[in-house]
């Protein structure tokens, strides 16, 4: 996966926030994934149709983080979610 990629969220995948965590769930397959608030923000931006690079740009405005670290984190999260079928190519 590359920073220029956009991703989509399959229609059967839903997210809900409880406490300070977000749980993503594919109710059809029973697959689930927990996100901390930063991960939940990335997930939210994915759902708005931004490219991974645009997500990084937004996050750099909102969080104290090095670009290199952030890009690696976003790419890793996207790969993990894609592997579980919780996001797909746009």
């Amino acid at each position: 996966m590359n920073l220029s990629d956009k991703v989509s969220i399959p229609t059967q995948v839903m997210a809900r926030t409880v406490g300070d965590e977000t749980v993503i769930l594919d109710l059809a397959s029973g697959t689930y994934f927990g996100l901390d608030p930063v991960g939940a923000r990335i997930w939210g931006l994915m759902g708005e149709g931004a490219t991974l690079a645009e997500i990084c740009a937004t996050m750099l405005d909102e969080y104290e983080v090095e670009r290199e670290q952030l890009e690696a984190d976003v790419l890793r999260l996207a790969a993990e979610l894609a592997e579980r079928g919780l996001i797909g190519p746009a």
């Binding site: 809900r16 409880v18 406490g19 977000t22 749980v23 029973g30 689930y32 927990g34």
Partner: peptide, 16 residues
């Protein structure tokens, strides 16, 4: 249990 852990367990143990 944390709320997110509880939510996952509730999902796993639901009749649907």
């Amino acid at each position: 249990l944390r709320p997110a852990e509880a939510l996952i367990e509730l999902v796993k143990h639901s009749f649907l």
